[in-house]
Nucleic acid binder design. Structure first.
Lengths: 204, 204
DNA sequence: ATAATTTCACTATCTTGCTTTTATAGTATC
DNA sequence: GATACTATAAAAGCAAGATAGTGAAATTAT
């Protein structure tokens, strides 16, 4: 319907064509390409299958393409704001730091941050070097240690306070991480505190 | 409080002691053992931790143990009514049969039936011999075949109707399962129907 | 032309051995 | 005699490679 406007569009130069077939992200923002046969327009970096050169039209901005009745591609376009992985995961670790006393699992963490638990798990490990569960356990044991040193709370109470309502399991896990049971840890470190004015001998 | 009744109880014979530490189910009903330090009584087959021999008292029946102020063990006793896995899974397959046109996944199936998706998956495979996903795919392809034979709907429409909104993927899957594409399948079986009065040559 | 099929690169979900966590029972210790 | 700790089977959940599913676009068949 607006084929008569053909001459108002940019010509498909070799440079642009190369950018398109190489999905070259450095050209993003410089131009958009539309495909006549599908009525869809993309950014140069779009990873979708390369169109035939003769079906391509070039636009300087998205509005022009929309005006010419093309719709934005679902793969490259709506990819507007995707914050980098590190920020995404920082979100997750902050949540854990604040909510270690609650029940936590992958599904929940995925939900509060973003989509798939499986994907989140992969990225978490890539960014932090440890798995989410390992991270959660470390936070909980560190908090438990603070309670043991700074308070006189009983072991069951501390277990509950750090998000491990199962006392016997808490003791097992604590011993696995620190080498000693909670009560032993308290005894050892209270003494040290009195004698040397020190704290937190094993962790940190 | 009723230590004076000690002599009215059975003696812990070597045979009974062996039955207890081996969790020997063949002795169930013949006697019960109570543990003085915990105030709990069990059947011989109970899987809980073995008590010390000197803490054990033997009873001929549960009533005697109750009368002596012991409470029944929660692991071996309440194992009264647990419906078999097959019934649980039948629930799931019925749901699939009725809802194959909707989006389905493990989490959903676990939710409508019972707890953990992982556990459900394991039991499903044990009971049915195939995984839930395989089962769903089979249902969908069988329904698609009915549509191909009984109607003139297009392939995309059929794909959507059987819960696979992505036509290209539907075709890929159909071919993987039947060996031919949907349109080919229709052509072959329509012809056969006309010529021989038959139907559904490949599946069923 | 329209519908069907294939291709491709990517993301989401499954799969399943392994680990964590729960639920109970029992012993040790202070 | 309450609190700490050990033990253990079953259920729940993780981990990470394998597989399924998506969305764009070309190609082929009708």
């Amino acid at each position: 319907m607006d084929m008569d406007r053909e001459y108002t569009q940019d010509f498909v130069t070799d440079e642009k064509w190369q950018a398109i077939i190489n999905n070259d992200a450095s050209y993003n923002g410089q131009f958009y390409y539309a495909v006549k046969t599908t009525g869809i327009f993309c950014r140069p970096s779009c990873k979708s299958r390369a169109p035939k050169r003769e079906n391509v039209r070039i636009f300087k901005c998205a509005d022009q393409a929309l005006a010419a009745n093309y719709r934005p591609c679902k793969r490259c376009k709506p990819t507007r704001e995707k914050l980098p992985d590190s920020e995404w995961i920082a979100h997750v670790t902050q949540y854990i730091d604040k909510n270690y006393m609650e029940k936590l699992n992958l599904d929940l963490l995925a939900e509060i941050s973003h989509g798939s638990p499986y994907h989140m798990h992969r990225i978490f490990k890539k960014v932090k070097g440890i798995t989410p569960v390992e991270f959660i356990q470390q936070v909980r044991i560190k908090e438990a240690i603070k309670f043991l040193i700074d308070t006189e709370k009983g072991v069951s109470e501390i277990a509950l306070a750090v998000g491990i309502p199962n006392t016997s399991y808490f003791i097992t896990l604590f011993k696995k991480k620190t080498g000693v049971t909670p009560a032993e840890y308290r005894k050892l470190n209270k003494k040290k505190y009195k004698m040397e004015g020190l704290r937190h001998g094993i962790q940190e």
